[in-house]
Amino acid sequence: MNVLVLMEPGEPSRQALTLARKFGEPHGLPVQAVQPFAPDALAAALARAVEELDAGAVFAAGTDRGNEVMARLAARLNLPLAANCIGAAPGDPATVTRLRWGGSLLEEARLHSPRPLVTVAPHTVPADDGPQPPTIEVGSPALGDLVVRVSDHIKPTNGGISLADAKVIVSGGRGVGSKEGFAIIEELAGLLGAAVGCSRAVTSAGWRPHSDQVGQTGTKVAPEVYIACGISGATQHMAGLKGAKRILAINSDPQAPLMLNADYTVTGDLKEIVPAISAEIRRARAGRTSS
């Protein structure tokens, strides 16, 4: 049986390809086949390929692009879609395991469909080193499928270190207390060459911009060290921390979920602890230069 895979550059599509091999012989449709990006044109091309190859299933990475194109394909073919799966097995019905709540919960589900449509949550399935699939040729898109297409691109304004790439993040939560309270967080971040992050409570209060927010509806981060100051650790926040190597939690409540899910903890008032850490870094550096 043939299966289709929407291929984007990068690891997540290779992970989707790995899962697709369990369903049949994969054929790849590169997302760059339509330039500039036009999701309806890609969905139309996938729909044509489903027909021509009599494909038994279609896979894509559970990226923004992958989920979007697959949802359009599902609407077009009038089929169900299982998004952000971490496992899938063929059968009647097919079975899938998928992420809920940004990965804080898993769902086992049956997918009743003549052609399972599945997106694979990035970095949840190891990619195999199997062969690249043959590439499907995409004809010229119909005009009607180009109504929604990228017509311009805005480069990010380069203000400091981006959260997604930061090696160290100093993050503040409700416990910081106010907009002004972030001065000590910024000071520590400056000393560490770190990015400043925050929890959703902080953005909702208007203390920091949404671009600083770490979590399910903010940025997902993967630093070497994540320093959480006065953040309780709701699932909303933890969903953004799955890639963090080491977590240091500073909180007055030793039973806060983040304190129980950290690698290192300091209990107490962050307004004393954070400046003390900054002072200690300065002392350590001064000692290093004088000796």
Partner: peptide, 25 residues
């Protein structure tokens, strides 16, 4: 439903075991 929920699972934790570095400054 054609995507039929069978059951939910709470995923295993990430196995972090917090080491306390003490309290306060």
């Amino acid at each position: 439903p054609r995507l039929e929920l069978v059951k939910l699972l709470v995923p295993a934790g990430q196995g972090r075991r917090a080491e306390s570095l003490g309290s306060g400054a």
